[in-house]
């Protein structure tokens, strides 16, 4: 068991180190970054802000990880967020009960996922093209729902999803942790995760081996749509209004970035939801750090890009082999190697 944890940690090491470095840098630019205070029944502090503001990207990253593990990609999640937020806001504004609005929004999210899954799994379109359709059309659909205005509402129950507290934390934090836990348990405590990886490595071979590839591919897009729906509900509840133009705009790119920073390959296969979530937190830590630092906004994107490049470069295999090449040769020929083998054997 300890070995498993050690192997886990080794897999997550680059992400954890990157996160620690970014957080340390934030501590430097903003001295009270790590301060936590308790007020009005919840924790306050920049770290909590990171967890809270990172919620949409974290949620999207959960679904995106599974999609990418099947060698797919889902560009439509930002637009799906906008549609689901618009649906929920318009129903609540019409005076429908909150439960109806939430169920409808989640249902629309699943519908978006089903559409993508149908295009990818049944019509065999390339995922990037298939999901691009909804990415472009989705915002138009959301605009139709809101009739082109920012649709505001005054339902405290719905607003609670975006700005309330639960167990001493902002509700969005609890929501994304819960979704991550549920999805994580389902894919890792069953064979589903392995089957998803198999599809990503070789779809035809896994189909021949008896894996229901069509069903599984549709399912991962459904999960992605559902995660996007929850994210859409959170951003809509947060500002108490559905902004069809801007809700979730470009977040699909941040979600893909989170997955990549988390070390999951865009070529499919092995994945780690936990690593993607750490990736999402790295991205949000950078965003929050930039806001706290007080640099002129012209530098925002340059700083973000620079840090991301550095993190990705650290993970690149080419740099790894360069390091192995440049590393001073061990004094005695092979003392380290057997140790390692021993460890694995144990």
């Amino acid at each position: 068991m300890p070995d498993m944890i050690l192997a886990r940690l080794k897999r997550l090491a680059p992400q954890l180190i990157a996160l620690a470095l970014v957080l340390a840098a934030n501590g430097l630019v903003s001295p009270n970054f790590f301060d936590l205070t308790w007020a009005n029944g919840r924790l306050y502090g920049s770290l909590i802000d990171v967890l809270n503001r990172g919620a949409p990207v974290a949620l999207l990253a959960i679904g995106m990880t599974l999609v990418i593990a099947t060698k797919g990609i889902d560009l439509s999640v930002g637009a799906t967020m906008a549609i689901c937020g618009a649906v929920a806001a318009s129903l609540v504004a019409e005076g429908q009960p909150l439960a109806v609005a939430l169920v409808a929004a989640l249902g629309v999210g699943l519908l978006c996922g089903l559409w993508n899954g149908f295009l990818v799994a049944i019509l065999q379109l390339q995922p990037i093209v298939a999901t691009l359709i909804l990415m472009v059309a989705g915002r138009g659909i959301a605009q139709l729902v809101t009739e082109g205005v920012i649709l505001t509402f005054n339902d405290p129950g719905f607003a609670f999803l975006g700005s309330g507290n639960l167990l001493g934390l902002p509700t969005p934090v609890i929501l994304w942790l819960a979704v991550a836990l549920i999805v994580g348990v389902i894919v890792r405590r069953s064979a589903l995760g392995l089957l998803v990886e198999a599809i990503g490595v070789n779809r035809r071979a896994s189909a021949l081996a008896g894996v229901k590839t069509r069903f599984l591919v549709i399912s991962v897009y459904l999960v992605s749509g559902l995660c996007a729906a929850v994210a859409g509900l959170i951003v809509t509840a947060d500002i108490r209004g559905a902004d069809a133009n801007n809700a979730g705009l470009w977040l699909e790119l941040d979600a893909i970035l989170a997955v990549v920073v988390g070390g999951t390959s865009l070529l499919g296969g092995r994945f780690s939801i936990l690593a993607s979530l750490i990736g999402a937190m790295i991205i949000q830590s950078i965003n929050t750090g930039i806001l706290l630092a007080g640099f002129p906004p012209e530098f925002n994107l340059i700083i973000k890009a620079g840090i991301i490049v550095a993190i990705l470069a650290l993970q690149s295999p080419a740099l790894g082999s360069l390091w192995a090449f440049l590393r001073p040769a061990p004094r005695s020929p092979t003392p380290a190697a057997p140790d390692k083998k021993e460890l694995v054997a144990r």
Partner: peptide, 12 residues
């Protein structure tokens, strides 16, 4: 946007 306005104001 409202979302970014809120987030940035929080950091301020």
């Amino acid at each position: 946007t409202r979302t970014k306005g809120k987030e940035v104001m929080e950091s301020f």
